[in-house]
Amino acid sequence: MTERLAIRRATPDDVAATWRWRRLPEVGEWITSAPTDYATYRARFVDPARLALTLVVELDGEPIGDLMVKVEDGWAQAEVADQGRAVQAEIGWTLDPAFGGQGYATEAVRGTIGMAFEQLGLRRVHAGCFAANVASWRLMERLGMRREELSRKTGLHRSGEWLDGMDYALLAEDWQG
Rank of each mutant, 00 (worst) to 15 (best):
G65N: 04
L163S: 06
A172Q: 08
Q88H: 11
T154R: 10
A127V: 05
D174T: 03
D167G: 12
R123S: 15
V46R: 01
R50H: 09
D66R: 05
F130P: 04
P35K: 08
V15A: 00
A169H: 00
T2Y: 02
D66C: 04
Y38I: 11
R158G: 09
Y41K: 04
E148Y: 09
T54G: 01
V134F: 07
M145S: 00
A52V: 02
L150A: 13
D47T: 01
C129E: 00
D174A: 05
A16P: 03
G74M: 13
A10S: 02
G28A: 12
E118W: 06
G92W: 10
A52M: 00
A49V: 06
L139N: 03
Q176D: 11
E29G: 04
A39V: 09
R8W: 02
Q88P: 05
A81T: 13
M115F: 14
W93T: 00
F117Y: 07
L55A: 04
R85K: 13
C129A: 08
V134C: 07
G74P: 15
D14T: 06
V125A: 01
G128S: 12
D37H: 09
D37F: 12
V69L: 00
T154H: 12
H126D: 09
G114V: 03
R42I: 02
L5S: 10
Y104S: 07
N133L: 03
Y38T: 04
E149N: 12
V125C: 05
D82P: 11
E29N: 06
E141V: 10
G65K: 05
A34T: 13
G121A: 11
V69G: 01
R142L: 03
F99L: 13
R22E: 07
L150S: 14
A127F: 06
T106K: 08
R138V: 06
A78M: 14
Y38H: 09
V71T: 14
L53R: 14
E29H: 07
A169Y: 06
E26C: 03
K70F: 00
A34I: 08
L95E: 08
R50M: 00
G28N: 08
D174M: 00
L150H: 15
G101C: 07
R152N: 12
A6P: 14
V46H: 04
L59R: 10
A78Q: 12
A6R: 10
A135R: 15
R20I: 08
E58R: 10
A17M: 07
Y41N: 05
R42N: 01
V27S: 04
P48E: 06
R22C: 02
V15G: 01
W162Y: 12
T32A: 13
D164Y: 11
T54K: 01
L5I: 06
T18C: 07
L150F: 11
P25Q: 09
V69A: 04
R4A: 02
K70M: 12
